[in-house]
Design a protein around this nucleic acid. Structure first.
Length: 864
DNA sequence: GCACGCCTCCAGGAG
DNA sequence: GTCTCCTGGAGGCGTGCC
């Protein structure tokens, strides 16, 4: 025991210098060097907009407050004299009203409006007892924009970009773009209208100037809990914080542990981080105070779920222990936790963002859990525990907690700080603060970006109901019940095996269509008589000939700049690696925005929602792909399949490919590219369902059930073995041998199944609960049945949880893995699943399963 | 009473 | 809370047959 106590004593806080100097410069300097604009907010005590700047050279944060007496406001169509007679005028926050002129895109003319100024943001948009000004007006424009964003627009600020304070004023740092680079990029916009070229010019610095590396500290806490399977409730903060870990991008690695009676250091696990400094605290309050000092000493604090848990818990716990509010550098919002003086980024929110998950990380992680994300992106997992957190020895607890902090940090440092750079780029594009951009979804980014561009042009930001009133609803019918308008075409695939298949696709088809056809809410069904002849094929809609659409121009500019410059240059070996890496971030960030740019137009919740724009986009997509099929057939090329923006063509000559590409660029001014080159492709005959083998033998599997996440592991394994065999096939003659080997593989797995030589884990279906259990009322899917069985045993389950269940004989038919035994398994059901899985491939190979084996089903084949 | 067809719900995926 | 199109499995219900 003595040695343990002495070891602990070695780590006593008196001997270790824990605190770091705050990065905060309380007094705003009159002049600074270049700083990054991290965030714009509102300081209630001063009643001013507040910009958080980070000075990378001095490692300091400065707060700069508005010096222009900028006030919150909203806009009304009533003249000032009428407004002065309304209750608005006696609102305690009412300051005054002034006449302004705005350009109204919906009517295509200048309008006189009234700008109503207020003393504070709440006076405009307040709710509850004290109604805000916007609710006292019959109609109010631009009244729902958070004040700090309004300030960004009016000052034309670009979050994530460089600013400096000069004589107390905030000025952007101007960067010289090399003349050659500028010219090279603008060359790609040769022949485009002037406003497009001007737009490109104004956006270039955003893309060309690399993001800085900003120091950041990841924090993770562990809390004692007496209950199994229960996360402590932050708002109650009943139990002590027993461990806090820190890992920073500049090499700080610390673990704070709370000393508890009856706990020992234990033996050092292999996972213990020797490079981290272990600090013991007798007193929890002291532990929290030191934690807060560290939190105040970095410009960016990273957590994984810190909004809802870690920072939330720390705040409430600190209050409970009697720490004074001003000593807690945490500001709790409704759904988030801010910090002082820097910015808090909750990576759980960022990685949960569907667009980030799918488009930035190509669906590499399927669940937004720290373990799943870290495993697939970093190759590092969380530490597996055999005991409850509250029972771990000090060393084990420290190792476990620290790993989480370390992973959290690494999520922003891996691949050359990819994620940090991506966040900064998205700030610049969306014009949102770091705290906002990491918490909002893609529609929030696009909304803010469009609002900004409206404001700097003095365009009135329209009301959603006015857009729909003027432009109307969709006129097409969706194929799927419950959808609002018709979408893309999927060409019926020709079943069979085809060697030498090329996939041509229209590069970012929808953004290109929006741009080329000038589709924007103000240009579709515009008010001009002479434009009515400019029709969209097959639709009653027309497009403006007089005016360039605002949103279509922005989307087109982003699309072109990505396709022509950043995407190719990110792979150009003549460019230095640092630049290439930044370019790669830029092109990925643009991809995220572009992929959603059409979708938001068809989203009712989007403030510029415009169904005619959305359905015109898909209608033109259908038009273009149909014309492409026609053209291909006309020049003697067989089209095997196509989906939305692609055609799969059989054995085309180079000449034929060139003809098609030139035709597309001449006919539509849209690029048709070679997307994929297959050695062979097999089509089962089902749409969105095929297997292709590239020239190098790698395999491209789409839609097949063997690949689906919820397919049992053993079927996936069998499927992969079969795929492996197929990847070796290089000519028609190889198929006979391949089929024999495939039959062997299937038989092998069948025998394993029949003899129950498989684990329950291998047999489990893993299906996600998409909502809480009580919300399943219409039907009871199998995973819900299993989940309800689990609940009887006291397990708490909710939306997002993955249920693992197996199919068993008997009335209910399913059991959660935890409750099942191997002898209960319903072998026939699994046979059925194997059959469908392999039918998709084998039929694709061109031969019906029945024909291969000469029996009606696999089942009867094996029962022979 | 029961097989069967048809529709709906739900999850997961393609683009 | 971008969008629509497509597939498979199970649940739920009506219908016709024995």
């Amino acid at each position: 025991m003595n040695s343990i106590t002495s070891k602990i004593a070695e780590h006593s806080p008196d001997k270790v210098k824990v605190s770091r100097r705050s990065v905060f410069e309380a007094e705003t300097p009159k002049n600074t060097g270049p700083c990054i604009l991290l965030s714009v907010g509102y300081d209630g005590s001063r009643g001013k907009a507040l910009c958080k700047l980070y000075d990378p050279l001095k490692n300091k944060i400065y707060y700069w407050f508005d010096n222009s007496d900028h006030k919150p406001y909203c806009i009304s169509d009533l003249p000032p004299e009428k407004i002065r007679k309304l209750p608005v005028a006696v609102h305690q926050g009412f300051i005054g009203v002034e006449v302004i002129e705005k350009y109204d895109l919906l009517t295509d003319r200048m309008v006189k409006m009234s700008k109503i100024l207020a003393s504070d943001p709440l006076s405009i948009g307040g709710r509850g007892k004290m109604k805000g000004i916007r609710d006292l007006l019959p109609k109010a424009w631009e009244a729902k924009i958070p004040y700090h964003n309004c300030y960004i627009y009016d000052r034309r600020l670009i979050p994530g970009f460089y600013y400096r304070i000069v004589d107390g004023d905030l000025l952007p740092v101007s960067f010289e773009i090399p003349r050659k680079t500028r010219e090279n990029i603008l060359n790609f916009f040769e022949g485009e209208p002037d406003p497009v070229r001007e737009l490109v010019n104004s956006w270039l610095p955003i893309f060309l100037y690399p993001a800085p590396n900003i120091p950041r500290l990841a924090v993770d806490i562990e809390v004692y809990t007496p209950q199994v399977d229960r996360v402590p409730e932050p708002s109650l903060a009943e139990y002590p914080v027993i461990c806090v870990s820190f890992s920073s991008s500049d090499g700080l690695n610390k673990i704070f542990l709370l000393k508890r009676k009856g706990f020992s250091l234990g033996s050092k696990p292999e996972t213990f981080p020797e490079y981290a400094e272990l600090v013991f605290f007798e007193d929890e309050k002291k532990l929290l105070n030191e934690t807060f000092k560290l939190i105040s000493s970095y410009p960016i604090i990273l957590t994984f779920n810190g909004d809802d848990f870690d920072l939330n818990y720390l705040w409430h716990r600190a209050k409970k222990l009697g720490i004074k509010g001003e000593e807690i550098p945490i500001v709790l919002g409704k759904n988030s936790a801010g910090i002082i003086p820097g910015v808090h980024v909750d990576l759980y929110k960022f990685f949960s963002n569907r667009s980030i998950q799918i488009y930035a990380f190509s669906n590499k992680y399927k669940d937004a859990t720290l373990d799943a994300i870290a495993t697939s992106l970093l190759g590092i997992s969380k530490i597996r525990l055999n005991e409850l957190i509250s029972e771990l020895s000090y060393y084990e607890l420290a190792s476990y907690c620290f790993r989480d902090a370390e992973i959290t940090l690494k999520l922003t440092t891996f691949n050359n700080d990819l994620v940090l750079k991506l966040i900064i780029l998205l700030m610049r594009i969306s014009k949102l603060s770091m705290d906002d951009v990491t918490r909002q979804s893609v529609s929030g980014w696009i909304k803010n970006l469009f609002y900004y561009e409206h404001r700097i042009r003095n365009y009135l930001i329209p009301l959603k109901e006015d857009i729909v009133a003027v432009k109307g609803e969709a006129v097409t019918r969706a194929l799927i019940k419950g959808k609002k308008y018709m979408g893309a075409i999927v060409i019926e695939p020709k079943p069979g095996v085809y060697f030498n298949v090329i996939v041509l696709d229209f590069a970012s088809l929808y953004p290109s269509v929006l741009y080329r056809w000038n589709l924007s809410y103000e240009t579709i069904r515009c008010p001009h008589e002479e434009c009515k002849s400019n029709r969209i094929p097959s639709l009653p809609h027309w497009v403006c000939k007089r005016r360039l659409g605002l949103t279509s121009t922005i989307i087109g500019m982003l699309r072109n700049i990505r396709v022509y410059w950043f995407k190719p240059k990110s792979k150009d070996p003549n460019i230095d690696e640092a630049t290439r890496s930044w370019y790669s971030v830029v092109q990925q960030g643009l991809k995220v925005i572009l992929n959603a740019s059409y979708g938001v137009m068809g989203n009712e919740a989007f403030p510029l929602y415009c169904p005619p724009v959305a359905e015109s986009t898909t209608a033109l997509g259908r038009y273009i792909i149909s014309k492409a099929v026609e053209k291909a057939e006309k020049i003697g090329v067989e089209v095997l399949y196509g989906d939305t923006d692609s055609i799969f063509i059989h054995k085309p000559t180079d000449e034929q490919i060139n003809v098609l590409m030139e035709w597309a660029s001449k006919e539509f001014k849209i690029d048709l590219d070679i997307d994929k080159v297959y050695r062979y492709v097999t089509f089962s005959g089902l749409k969105k369902n095929y297997l292709g083998v590239f020239r190098d033998g790698s395999v491209d599997i789409k839609g097949l059930v063997g690949k689906k996440r919820n397919t049992p592991e053993f079927i996936k394994k069998a499927f992969l073995e079969v795929v492996e065999v197929l990847s070796k096939v290089s000519s028609v003659n190889d198929f006979e041998e391949a089929k024999r080997r495939i039959a062997e593989i299937i038989r092998n797995y069948y025998v394993k199944l029949r003899d129950r030589r498989l684990s329950l884990e291998d047999l489990a279906f893993r299906v996600k609960l998409s909502r809480s259990l009580k919300h399943y009322v219409k039907t009871t899917p199998q995973h819900v049945k299993a989940a309800r069985l689990l609940e009887k045993y006291g397990k708490k389950l909710g939306a997002g949880d993955i249920i693992s269940y197996v199919k068993v004989k008997g009335e209910i038919g399913v059991k959660p893995v935890q409750l099942a035994r191997i002898d209960e398994i319903d072998v026939n059901k699994y046979m059925g699943h194997m059959e469908t899985t392999f039918r998709q491939i084998l039929e694709a190979v061109g031969v019906n399963l029945d024909e291969i084996f000469g029996f009606r089903s696999l089942d009867s084949f094996f029962k022979r």
